[in-house]
Every structure is written in structure tokens, then in C-alpha cells.
Design a protein around this nucleic acid. Structure first.
Lengths: 131, 131
DNA sequence: ATTAATAGTTACTTTTGGTAACCCAAAATT
DNA sequence: AATTTTGGGTTACCAAAAGTAACTATTAAT
């Protein structure tokens, strides 16, 4: 791999390719990618960002095809990273409300951009996929 | 789910929540999310976007921990959607080069935004994760 | 006494992803 | 002359993740 495209664009590399840089053993970009790279995390943040506070079953109904187990797992992970806040009210039946933290809203903004791009370009992608 | 937060933000909903809207049976946002929501797609696009044209094994070495099989699968999917172009040169040993299409570069731009956010906020996320 | 409601958990099955071995043809090495 | 190396895969097999269904708690309503 000497004198290939890899060697030619060092500046570009250094700017873009953070995937192999680690900060005390953790690569920030990879870490975030790993967190959002599953079927439900993005949709969950998107739901919370779009509606504000939501209860567990409200998120579940909005997403539609997420299982109870996977929504629980997803929300716990988001909570652990400080992207989502969980408020339990001592009522029966239980009431649990979820909200994005400021950090979560920051990610939401990125996802809104991504969703916008997805909308604008979905027809092109569909056309490729068939032809 | 009547008269909850869900009913209160219709405009916000209509703007943000495209995840349940379908266009001839396909939801653009969900479709894109499904495509990028795996461990290797984002990293692959990121590599190609950062370095321009790359050969199979160059991508593999850059990412580092992707298996041959999964990189093949990832690249084939990206190719099928028109995000990546695959050029096979009739040489021995074979030479296969991959490049982002304009569509792929569009997605790359979104991912660069996302990666920027990830870098800026990784410390905050790490702090939450431990405490 | 039974049912309904909310927010889960647990056990089990299926799907997906990861690992290692193998393939091809020619050029370089022994 | 025979073996090894090369690049870009494929195939078979195994582990991990996700999906499914059933179960739980507690109280109010029927």
C-alpha cells in the first residue's frame, strides 16, 4: 500500500479520517457511529426530538415495529450516554417519560440534516436499486 | 394516546417525523437509516470520501477490523444503491477500485457533519457513561 | 373475581454478523 | 519445475444480536 491513493491526500485524511484516532483508547467518531448504528436508536431520537417528551408506549407506537425489549435496550443505552432522560412517576399503572437532553438535541439536529438529505435523494437511490 | 404530547405538536411532527410516511410503499428516511445502520457502511463511505478512489484491500486496511466478507457485503449494498462505483480491471492479480458517486458524496457530507458533532461532544458522552 | 392498563423482564427462536478456510490465474521466488 | 504470493473475493460454519411470545407487578374499574 505504498504510493497509492492513500499517500496522496494526507491533509484530506487528517481532516476526515478520525476513525482510527483514539483518545485515551476510545475513538470518538467510531464510538458515536457504533451507538447510532442500529435499527432503533436513530428512530428513537427522531421521535423524541420531534415530539418532545414521550412515554414508553408512545415511542413504541410512533416507531411502530420496534419490540418492547429492543425499545427498552435502546432507551437504556441512550440514557447511559446522557442523550435521553428518564423520569419515572410513582403511579399505577406506571408512567415513565423520556426526553432528549441538550446533548440529545444536538444529535437530533444532525439526524434532521441526514433525514433531509434522505428525503431529497431517496428517489435517486430507489431508481438505482431497481435498474 | 389522545391529548398527549403527540397531539400537541402537529407542525413539528409534520416537519420532522417522516419515518412513517411512505412514498409508493417506501419511507425514504427509514430506508436510508436502514442502509447506514450497520457497523461498516458509514466507515466505508467515510474512507472513500476521505481518500477518493480506493482498492478493496486499502479500504480493508483503513477500517482495520472489518472482515473480507462484511466489506464485500457492504460494498455490494452501496453499489446497488448507486452510492459507490465499482471498477474491475482485467488484471492478474485482480484490481478493483471503488469510488463514491455524486450521490455517495452527498451522504458523505452528512456523515462529516455527524463526525464533527461526534468529536465535539465525545467527552461529554464519555463523562456521562462512566459517572 | 376478572379484566385492563403501563412498563417492563425472561426464555426461546431466528436472523445477522464474524471467523477461517478455500478459490482463481499469473508472476515471482526457490 | 514446483511452490509461493498476490488481490478480491466465496463458502461453510459458529457466535452474537435481534425478534417473538409469554410472563410480571400493582391498582382501579367492571
Amino acid at each position: 500500500m505504498e504510493n497509492t491513493a492513500i499517500d496522496t491526500q494526507k491533509k484530506f485524511q487528517n481532516f476526515f479520517w478520525k476513525a482510527n484516532e483514539t483518545r485515551n483508547g476510545v475513538c470518538p467518531v467510531r464510538d458515536i457511529i457504533a451507538r447510532i448504528s442500529d435499527k432503533w436508536t436513530i428512530l428513537t431520537i427522531y421521535a423524541l426530538g420531534g415530539y418532545g417528551t414521550l412515554r414508553f408506549n408512545e415511542i413504541k407506537k410512533l416507531i411502530g415495529d420496534v419490540s418492547q425489549r429492543m425499545l427498552t435496550v435502546t432507551l437504556r443505552n441512550l440514557e447511559a450516554d446522557g442523550l435521553v432522560e428518564r423520569h419515572v412517576y410513582a403511579e399505577v399503572p406506571p408512567r415513565v417519560e423520556y426526553t432528549l437532553t441538550p446533548l440529545g438535541y444536538g444529535l437530533m439536529e444532525q439526524l434532521v440534516q441526514l433525514a433531509g438529505w434522505a428525503e431529497d435523494n431517496s428517489q435517486a437511490i430507489m431508481k438505482n436499486r431497481k435498474g
